[in-house]
Amino acid sequence: MDTNKRMEQFRTMFQRVIDPLGYKFSPDEEIVDFLLEQEVMLEKEKGSPFCPCQGLTGEREHDMKLVCPCIPFHREHYDAMRRCWCGLYVHKDVDDPDELVQISKKEFEASRNKG
């Protein structure tokens, strides 16, 4: 299938998943296009549109939690960043995604334990 067509299908399908979770596609169109294109490639190569910014181990239970949108499996962490790890999605109230920083798993867990 044509890459652009598949990217559009991802947009439609994933929008339905992220909306009830309080997320939207990033307003940074360039990043969104790039990431969706990578996901189409990943789907062709590995069978699923995996997160382009997280590593797969080949273990199904681990890897399936990285299929886009992976928000449900990393909810607290992403809510703390107000974006997902790769930045394809942001919280609905975010206008400027550049003001958000990535917080690593270790930093997130440390802040949660303090908090």
């Binding site: 009830p20 979770l21 699923s48 399936m64 449900p72 499996f73």
Partner: peptide, 20 residues
């Protein structure tokens, strides 16, 4: 079968995010 998302057949709820 595709990505292992799990649903309760009684309510339709997705076990990892009940909003879906």
């Amino acid at each position: 079968p595709c990505h292992d998302w799990r649903f309760d057949i009684r309510s339709g709820e997705f076990l990892d995010a009940k909003e879906i």
